[in-house]
Nucleic acid binder design. Structure first.
Lengths: 266, 266
DNA sequence: TGTGTGTGTCCGGTATTTCAGACAGTATGT
DNA sequence: ACATACTGTCTGAAATACCGGACACACACA
């Protein structure tokens, strides 16, 4: 939906992508997988070729290699492909290579069960915020979010914590200007955002509401590495009309559990 | 340790693996990821180069590309790398692309909780059996197994179900001869194995004990695709001394749940 | 101090792979 | 019936990614 913006934006000065650019197979693989992740559904080879702007013949070859390796697999009967079994195994290996992850998972399970609210594990991916894992509330109506979707950092509570090791200048350089513009057109003032970060750094938590959407109240608490760095956050996503007493109760619980999961004191 | 055999061995007659085999980057990537999966721990670039039998310079380049893409990430401070965040996301996407998976996960959680036994989701990967997911018993001593480890098919109960669509000849062609040899030296007779498969096909379940190891009793029930094909099995791993009445009780429960998860009748 | 082993980077040549385009086959719409 | 659009496979040829090997550096051991 937003992909042929390439042409439009690139038009003015930079010859961004000419047709004939020979690229490495590896790079194509990486682009392919990321495109598929963004697409969030099985796709046909021809479409993939367009998505990553690669020749069809090349794309076929790559896709076939990945199919052989089970990194992709055929879905349905009409040439759609999506991630395959091997990806599941690689991902699982990533998740479990340290015992720490087990504890995080258990905590998320427990919190989701106890509170009945949506619990998320969040981190950064490049200069975007991303949901790494998610436990939903069991009710018929739930606020859920897909793991892997990328969101501008300023839209999120977690983002304020995840940037708290940066200086103001570093933050300014790190965040694309357009990421300060919310979906409804409002723009977050850079100074206010920097103040939020400083605030989050001091308090050891962060709360936002009505940023990414109008109906959620988000609270995030840091999971610190041994070094003290914050690479992930634990996060509760509440309906915006959750009453204040319950909110502070939940915030306290969230902070407590995050503290227990941290490898360094909060 | 076995890598400079190239020169020595190659001399007499067989050019088993000559040093100079140029390979595509893509293939290297695939080999690298699978090697890392088998290794099950972070590894250094030099070691990876040996594992996949690739030139060091090439390996460095590939690893750096994958690091940039977050498909790998640095672990610790001394040059170890392992799967990265992107892999987690790709794997998650694989797991959740169909609603079916949600139900399977829920069922595994429920069964693990109710029975207190180890529950596994199993499938094939090439001509090996592989654990796709696993819920452990909560007790202090548990029979657990790692997701992603590959095991010869004849060693497993699930394997008998997963081959039940094949003719005898197909099975014979599919299973490497050496896979009939158990770890303790015993050899499974091919005919007995084929009979087991036929049996599993008729009964709609399969049980084994004392094959892969001496202390487990495994029972597997098929998860059928819409087409009727069996691509995955649900599996209970019990201590071998579990009394018979409880075994049949658990088997019945297992079959019932597998039937509910199947997209075609069992 | 010297010897051995391993790391991370760089370079130039060539064996290979990517690419463009053509092809036959199939589905869709007019 | 024709036209259009897409799929999956092949081909030759040019561009280049991979390789071997060299380098500087770091660490361990004797």
């Amino acid at each position: 939906m937003t992909n042929e913006a390439i042409e439009v934006l690139g038009a003015d000065s930079i010859p961004v992508q000419r047709g004939g650019e020979r690229k490495r197979g590896i790079d194509r693989v990486i682009m392919l997988l990321e495109a598929l992740l963004k697409h969030r559904a099985p796709a046909r080879v021809g479409d993939i070729a367009k998505m990553i702007n690669a020749p069809r013949s090349t794309t076929y070859e790559i896709v076939n290699s990945l199919l052989d390796a089970e990194m992709l697999e055929n879905v349905g009967s009409d040439g759609h492909v999506y991630f395959g079994r091997a990806m599941h195994l690689f991902g699982w290996a990533y998740s479990h290579h340290n015992a720490h992850y087990r504890r995080i998972i258990e905590t998320m399970d427990a919190m989701a069960a106890e509170t009945g609210e949506t619990v998320q594990l969040c981190g950064l991916r490049g200069n975007k915020y991303v949901v790494l894992d998610c436990r939903g509330s069991p009710g018929p109506f739930r606020i859920s979010s897909d793991v892997g979707v990328e969101v501008p950092i300023p839209w999120t509570a977690s983002g304020r914590l995840l940037l708290s090791h940066m200086s103001d200048d570093e933050v300014r350089a790190f965040i694309p200007k357009e990421d300060f513009r919310l979906r409804d057109g409002r723009v977050i003032a850079q100074d206010a955002f920097l103040a939020d970060i400083a605030n989050a750094r001091e308090q050891g938590f962060s709360e936002t509401s009505g940023l990414a959407d109008s109906f959620t109240w988000c609270m995030a608490a840091p999971l610190r590495e041994r070094s003290g760095a914050i690479t992930r956050t634990l996060c509760l996503v509440l309906p915006v009309d959750t009453p204040q007493p319950r909110r502070s109760e939940l915030l306290a619980a969230l902070r407590e559990r995050a503290r227990n999961l941290s490898l360094a004191g909060n």
